[in-house]
Amino acid sequence: MIEARGLSKRYGKTLAVDNLSFSVTPGRVTGFLGPNGAGKSTTMRMILGLDTPTGGSALIGGKPYADLKHPLRTVGALLDAKWVHPNRSARGHLRWLARSNQLPAKRVDEVLDLVGLSGVANKRAGGFSLGMSQRLGIAGALLGDPQVLLFDEPVNGLDPEGILWIRKFMHRLADEGRTVFVSSHLLSEMALTAQDLIVIGRGRLIAHSSTEEFVAAATENTVRVRSPQLAVLRGALGRTGVSLRDEGDSLVVSGMESADIGELAAANGVVLHELSPQRGSLEEAFMQLTGDSVEYHTDLDAPAAADLIAAGK
Protein backbone atom coordinates (compact mmCIF):
# COMPACT_ATOMS: atom_id res chain seq x y z
CA MET A 1 0.00 0.00 0.00
CA ILE A 2 1.50 3.30 -1.14
CA GLU A 3 -0.07 6.59 -0.23
CA ALA A 4 0.74 10.10 -1.40
CA ARG A 5 -0.83 13.02 0.44
CA GLY A 6 -0.56 16.43 -1.14
CA LEU A 7 2.92 15.61 -2.40
CA SER A 8 4.76 18.61 -3.91
CA LYS A 9 8.30 19.23 -5.12
CA ARG A 10 9.66 22.54 -6.26
CA TYR A 11 12.99 23.03 -8.06
CA GLY A 12 13.69 26.74 -8.10
CA LYS A 13 10.83 28.26 -10.04
CA THR A 14 9.40 25.06 -11.50
CA LEU A 15 6.87 23.01 -9.61
CA ALA A 16 7.80 19.47 -10.67
CA VAL A 17 5.11 17.81 -8.56
CA ASP A 18 2.02 19.75 -7.59
CA ASN A 19 -0.13 18.65 -4.65
CA LEU A 20 -0.38 15.02 -5.71
CA SER A 21 -2.62 12.66 -3.73
CA PHE A 22 -3.31 9.03 -4.58
CA SER A 23 -3.11 5.54 -3.17
CA VAL A 24 -1.87 2.33 -4.72
CA THR A 25 -3.57 -0.88 -3.61
CA PRO A 26 -2.14 -4.38 -3.23
CA GLY A 27 -2.90 -7.26 -5.59
CA ARG A 28 -3.01 -5.13 -8.70
CA VAL A 29 -0.51 -3.64 -11.11
CA THR A 30 -0.96 0.11 -10.94
CA GLY A 31 0.37 2.12 -13.84
CA PHE A 32 1.83 5.58 -13.27
CA LEU A 33 1.32 7.30 -16.56
CA GLY A 34 2.41 10.66 -17.87
CA PRO A 35 4.49 12.24 -20.60
CA ASN A 36 8.25 12.66 -20.16
CA GLY A 37 8.94 15.33 -17.57
CA ALA A 38 5.53 14.99 -15.92
CA GLY A 39 7.09 14.32 -12.50
CA LYS A 40 6.84 10.52 -12.34
CA SER A 41 10.43 9.84 -11.35
CA THR A 42 10.48 12.71 -8.87
CA THR A 43 7.34 11.32 -7.24
CA MET A 44 8.84 7.86 -6.99
CA ARG A 45 12.06 9.27 -5.52
CA MET A 46 10.05 11.12 -2.88
CA ILE A 47 8.11 7.94 -2.04
CA LEU A 48 11.46 6.22 -1.55
CA GLY A 49 12.92 8.97 0.64
CA LEU A 50 15.65 9.91 -1.82
CA ASP A 51 14.27 13.39 -2.39
CA THR A 52 12.67 15.49 0.32
CA PRO A 53 9.19 16.74 -0.63
CA THR A 54 8.67 20.49 -0.56
CA GLY A 55 5.19 19.76 0.78
CA GLY A 56 2.98 16.81 1.72
CA SER A 57 4.12 13.30 2.48
CA ALA A 58 4.41 9.82 1.04
CA LEU A 59 3.79 6.72 3.11
CA ILE A 60 4.42 3.05 2.54
CA GLY A 61 2.23 0.80 4.67
CA GLY A 62 1.49 3.88 6.78
CA LYS A 63 5.14 4.81 7.40
CA PRO A 64 7.59 7.16 5.72
CA TYR A 65 10.32 5.21 3.91
CA ALA A 66 13.01 6.41 6.32
CA ASP A 67 11.20 4.81 9.26
CA LEU A 68 11.20 1.32 7.76
CA LYS A 69 13.49 -1.14 9.49
CA HIS A 70 15.30 -3.15 6.82
CA PRO A 71 13.45 -1.32 4.06
CA LEU A 72 14.42 -3.80 1.34
CA ARG A 73 12.21 -6.39 3.08
CA THR A 74 9.21 -4.08 2.68
CA VAL A 75 9.89 -2.21 -0.53
CA GLY A 76 11.77 -3.21 -3.67
CA ALA A 77 12.51 -0.56 -6.24
CA LEU A 78 14.05 -0.34 -9.67
CA LEU A 79 14.46 3.31 -10.54
CA ASP A 80 17.42 3.04 -12.90
CA ALA A 81 19.11 -0.13 -14.04
CA LYS A 82 22.44 1.71 -14.28
CA TRP A 83 22.73 2.31 -10.54
CA VAL A 84 25.46 -0.31 -10.32
CA HIS A 85 29.21 0.05 -10.06
CA PRO A 86 30.48 -1.12 -13.47
CA ASN A 87 33.45 -2.97 -12.02
CA ARG A 88 31.40 -4.90 -9.48
CA SER A 89 30.03 -8.31 -10.42
CA ALA A 90 26.28 -8.95 -10.41
CA ARG A 91 26.74 -11.18 -7.38
CA GLY A 92 28.93 -8.58 -5.64
CA HIS A 93 26.25 -5.94 -6.15
CA LEU A 94 23.52 -8.13 -4.69
CA ARG A 95 25.77 -9.34 -1.88
CA TRP A 96 26.23 -5.92 -0.36
CA LEU A 97 22.55 -5.12 -0.77
CA ALA A 98 21.61 -8.37 0.99
CA ARG A 99 24.11 -7.78 3.77
CA SER A 100 22.80 -4.27 4.43
CA ASN A 101 19.34 -5.62 5.28
CA GLN A 102 20.56 -8.80 6.97
CA LEU A 103 19.23 -11.07 4.26
CA PRO A 104 20.80 -14.53 3.95
CA ALA A 105 23.53 -14.84 1.30
CA LYS A 106 21.69 -17.72 -0.36
CA ARG A 107 18.91 -15.28 -1.23
CA VAL A 108 21.36 -13.68 -3.71
CA ASP A 109 21.58 -16.88 -5.72
CA GLU A 110 17.81 -17.36 -5.52
CA VAL A 111 17.03 -13.98 -7.08
CA LEU A 112 19.80 -14.36 -9.67
CA ASP A 113 18.14 -17.62 -10.65
CA LEU A 114 14.70 -15.98 -10.66
CA VAL A 115 15.72 -13.34 -13.21
CA GLY A 116 17.89 -15.74 -15.21
CA LEU A 117 21.29 -14.20 -14.49
CA SER A 118 22.93 -17.18 -12.72
CA GLY A 119 25.18 -17.79 -15.71
CA VAL A 120 26.74 -14.32 -15.59
CA ALA A 121 26.64 -13.80 -11.80
CA ASN A 122 30.40 -13.26 -11.58
CA LYS A 123 30.74 -11.04 -14.64
CA ARG A 124 31.24 -7.30 -14.14
CA ALA A 125 27.96 -5.41 -14.37
CA GLY A 126 29.55 -2.73 -16.56
CA GLY A 127 29.58 -5.18 -19.45
CA PHE A 128 25.86 -6.01 -19.22
CA SER A 129 23.40 -5.18 -21.98
CA LEU A 130 20.44 -3.00 -21.03
CA GLY A 131 18.20 -6.06 -20.78
CA MET A 132 20.63 -7.79 -18.42
CA SER A 133 21.06 -4.64 -16.33
CA GLN A 134 17.30 -4.41 -16.04
CA ARG A 135 17.13 -7.99 -14.83
CA LEU A 136 19.88 -7.27 -12.29
CA GLY A 137 17.90 -4.27 -11.09
CA ILE A 138 14.80 -6.41 -10.69
CA ALA A 139 16.84 -9.02 -8.83
CA GLY A 140 17.88 -6.26 -6.43
CA ALA A 141 14.28 -5.17 -5.99
CA LEU A 142 13.16 -8.72 -5.21
CA LEU A 143 16.02 -9.46 -2.82
CA GLY A 144 14.06 -8.81 0.36
CA ASP A 145 10.90 -10.52 -0.93
CA PRO A 146 9.07 -7.20 -0.46
CA GLN A 147 5.30 -6.65 -0.50
CA VAL A 148 5.63 -3.32 -2.31
CA LEU A 149 7.43 -2.89 -5.62
CA LEU A 150 8.19 0.24 -7.62
CA PHE A 151 9.49 0.23 -11.17
CA ASP A 152 10.38 3.38 -13.09
CA GLU A 153 10.02 2.94 -16.88
CA PRO A 154 11.15 -0.68 -16.69
CA VAL A 155 10.64 -1.50 -20.37
CA ASN A 156 12.45 1.53 -21.78
CA GLY A 157 14.90 0.40 -24.44
CA LEU A 158 14.13 -3.31 -24.08
CA ASP A 159 13.58 -5.69 -26.96
CA PRO A 160 10.09 -7.28 -27.40
CA GLU A 161 11.13 -10.43 -25.57
CA GLY A 162 12.35 -8.41 -22.60
CA ILE A 163 9.17 -6.33 -22.56
CA LEU A 164 7.01 -9.45 -22.52
CA TRP A 165 9.11 -10.97 -19.75
CA ILE A 166 8.78 -7.89 -17.52
CA ARG A 167 5.05 -7.60 -18.19
CA LYS A 168 4.42 -11.22 -17.17
CA PHE A 169 6.69 -10.81 -14.20
CA MET A 170 4.73 -7.83 -12.87
CA HIS A 171 1.45 -9.68 -13.29
CA ARG A 172 2.85 -12.59 -11.35
CA LEU A 173 3.99 -10.29 -8.54
CA ALA A 174 0.55 -8.66 -8.34
CA ASP A 175 -1.18 -12.05 -8.41
CA GLU A 176 0.88 -12.98 -5.35
CA GLY A 177 -0.90 -10.13 -3.58
CA ARG A 178 1.90 -7.53 -3.79
CA THR A 179 1.53 -3.85 -4.49
CA VAL A 180 3.08 -3.15 -7.89
CA PHE A 181 3.55 0.46 -8.98
CA VAL A 182 5.06 0.95 -12.42
CA SER A 183 5.62 4.13 -14.37
CA SER A 184 5.58 4.62 -18.11
CA HIS A 185 5.05 7.31 -20.71
CA LEU A 186 3.37 4.86 -23.09
CA LEU A 187 -0.37 4.34 -22.68
CA SER A 188 -0.30 1.41 -25.11
CA GLU A 189 2.18 -0.37 -22.84
CA MET A 190 0.22 0.46 -19.69
CA ALA A 191 -3.05 -0.70 -21.27
CA LEU A 192 -1.47 -4.17 -21.52
CA THR A 193 0.29 -4.15 -18.16
CA ALA A 194 -1.69 -2.20 -15.61
CA GLN A 195 -5.10 -2.84 -14.08
CA ASP A 196 -5.29 0.58 -12.47
CA LEU A 197 -3.94 3.86 -13.78
CA ILE A 198 -2.75 7.04 -12.11
CA VAL A 199 -2.27 9.63 -14.82
CA ILE A 200 -0.32 12.83 -14.23
CA GLY A 201 0.73 15.75 -16.38
CA ARG A 202 2.96 18.63 -15.31
CA GLY A 203 3.03 17.25 -11.80
CA ARG A 204 -0.75 17.32 -11.39
CA LEU A 205 -3.17 14.41 -11.09
CA ILE A 206 -5.25 14.02 -14.26
CA ALA A 207 -7.00 10.72 -13.68
CA HIS A 208 -7.09 7.87 -11.17
CA SER A 209 -9.22 4.94 -12.30
CA SER A 210 -9.14 1.41 -13.63
CA THR A 211 -7.42 1.05 -16.98
CA GLU A 212 -10.66 -0.09 -18.66
CA GLU A 213 -12.57 2.96 -17.47
CA PHE A 214 -9.77 5.27 -18.48
CA VAL A 215 -9.48 3.79 -21.95
CA ALA A 216 -13.26 3.83 -22.47
CA ALA A 217 -13.56 7.40 -21.28
CA ALA A 218 -10.55 8.52 -23.21
CA THR A 219 -11.46 6.97 -26.54
CA GLU A 220 -14.62 8.41 -27.99
CA ASN A 221 -16.55 6.00 -30.26
CA THR A 222 -17.95 7.59 -33.40
CA VAL A 223 -19.62 6.46 -36.63
CA ARG A 224 -18.82 7.95 -40.02
CA VAL A 225 -21.76 8.23 -42.44
CA ARG A 226 -21.74 9.18 -46.12
CA SER A 227 -24.93 9.66 -48.12
CA PRO A 228 -26.18 11.55 -51.19
CA GLN A 229 -29.10 12.66 -48.96
CA LEU A 230 -27.00 13.96 -46.10
CA ALA A 231 -29.37 16.87 -45.34
CA VAL A 232 -32.33 14.51 -44.68
CA LEU A 233 -30.23 12.25 -42.48
CA ARG A 234 -28.85 15.22 -40.58
CA GLY A 235 -32.39 16.33 -39.82
CA ALA A 236 -33.44 12.89 -38.64
CA LEU A 237 -30.35 12.45 -36.46
CA GLY A 238 -30.66 15.97 -35.14
CA ARG A 239 -34.08 15.18 -33.69
CA THR A 240 -32.61 12.29 -31.57
CA GLY A 241 -30.22 14.67 -29.80
CA VAL A 242 -26.88 12.97 -30.72
CA SER A 243 -23.89 15.19 -31.50
CA LEU A 244 -22.88 15.66 -35.11
CA ARG A 245 -19.79 16.94 -36.85
CA ASP A 246 -19.11 17.54 -40.57
CA GLU A 247 -15.91 16.10 -41.97
CA GLY A 248 -15.58 16.77 -45.74
CA ASP A 249 -18.49 15.07 -47.50
CA SER A 250 -19.30 12.87 -44.51
CA LEU A 251 -20.95 13.21 -41.15
CA VAL A 252 -19.39 11.99 -37.90
CA VAL A 253 -21.94 10.84 -35.32
CA SER A 254 -21.09 10.25 -31.71
CA GLY A 255 -23.41 8.75 -29.12
CA MET A 256 -25.27 6.28 -31.35
CA GLU A 257 -24.41 2.74 -32.47
CA SER A 258 -23.99 2.11 -36.22
CA ALA A 259 -26.95 -0.35 -36.24
CA ASP A 260 -29.32 2.30 -34.86
CA ILE A 261 -28.09 4.85 -37.42
CA GLY A 262 -28.70 2.33 -40.25
CA GLU A 263 -32.26 1.66 -39.06
CA LEU A 264 -32.96 5.36 -38.71
CA ALA A 265 -31.72 5.91 -42.29
CA ALA A 266 -33.93 3.07 -43.59
CA ALA A 267 -36.96 4.48 -41.75
CA ASN A 268 -36.36 7.81 -43.46
CA GLY A 269 -35.67 6.26 -46.87
CA VAL A 270 -32.07 7.53 -46.97
CA VAL A 271 -29.48 5.75 -49.13
CA LEU A 272 -26.15 5.18 -47.35
CA HIS A 273 -22.74 5.04 -49.12
CA GLU A 274 -20.79 4.44 -45.95
CA LEU A 275 -21.60 3.49 -42.39
CA SER A 276 -18.38 2.80 -40.50
CA PRO A 277 -17.70 2.74 -36.74
CA GLN A 278 -14.52 4.69 -35.83
CA ARG A 279 -12.38 3.74 -32.90
CA GLY A 280 -10.23 6.52 -31.48
CA SER A 281 -6.59 5.57 -30.88
CA LEU A 282 -5.34 5.26 -27.35
CA GLU A 283 -2.30 7.40 -28.02
CA GLU A 284 -4.41 10.17 -29.50
CA ALA A 285 -6.70 10.14 -26.52
CA PHE A 286 -3.77 10.23 -24.16
CA MET A 287 -2.20 13.11 -26.04
CA GLN A 288 -5.49 14.97 -25.82
CA LEU A 289 -5.77 14.40 -22.08
CA THR A 290 -2.25 15.39 -21.28
CA GLY A 291 -1.85 17.73 -24.22
CA ASP A 292 -1.68 20.86 -22.14
CA SER A 293 0.71 19.30 -19.71
CA VAL A 294 3.54 18.16 -21.94
CA GLU A 295 6.70 19.87 -20.84
CA TYR A 296 8.23 20.59 -24.24
CA HIS A 297 5.87 21.32 -27.09
CA THR A 298 7.09 20.68 -30.60
CA ASP A 299 4.58 23.16 -32.01
CA LEU A 300 4.16 20.80 -34.88
CA ASP A 301 0.70 19.37 -34.37
CA ALA A 302 -0.95 18.04 -37.50
CA PRO A 303 -2.69 21.12 -38.98
CA ALA A 304 0.29 23.35 -38.33
CA ALA A 305 2.57 20.79 -39.93
CA ALA A 306 0.29 20.59 -42.94
CA ASP A 307 0.42 24.36 -43.29
CA LEU A 308 4.18 24.29 -43.11
CA ILE A 309 4.39 21.64 -45.78
CA ALA A 310 1.96 23.54 -47.98
CA ALA A 311 3.94 26.74 -47.53
CA GLY A 312 7.18 24.99 -48.32
CA LYS A 313 6.14 23.27 -51.56
Partner: peptide, 13 residues
Amino acid sequence: FSTIRATFLAVPN
Protein backbone atom coordinates in the same frame (compact mmCIF):
# COMPACT_ATOMS: atom_id res chain seq x y z
CA PHE B 1 27.45 5.57 -10.55
CA SER B 2 24.44 6.51 -8.39
CA THR B 3 25.05 3.50 -6.15
CA ILE B 4 24.75 6.03 -3.32
CA ARG B 5 21.02 6.04 -4.09
CA ALA B 6 20.90 2.26 -3.94
CA THR B 7 22.74 2.60 -0.62
CA PHE B 8 20.27 5.11 0.79
CA LEU B 9 17.37 2.88 -0.37
CA ALA B 10 18.86 -0.02 1.54
CA VAL B 11 19.86 2.14 4.53
CA PRO B 12 17.65 5.23 4.80
CA ASN B 13 19.65 6.43 7.82
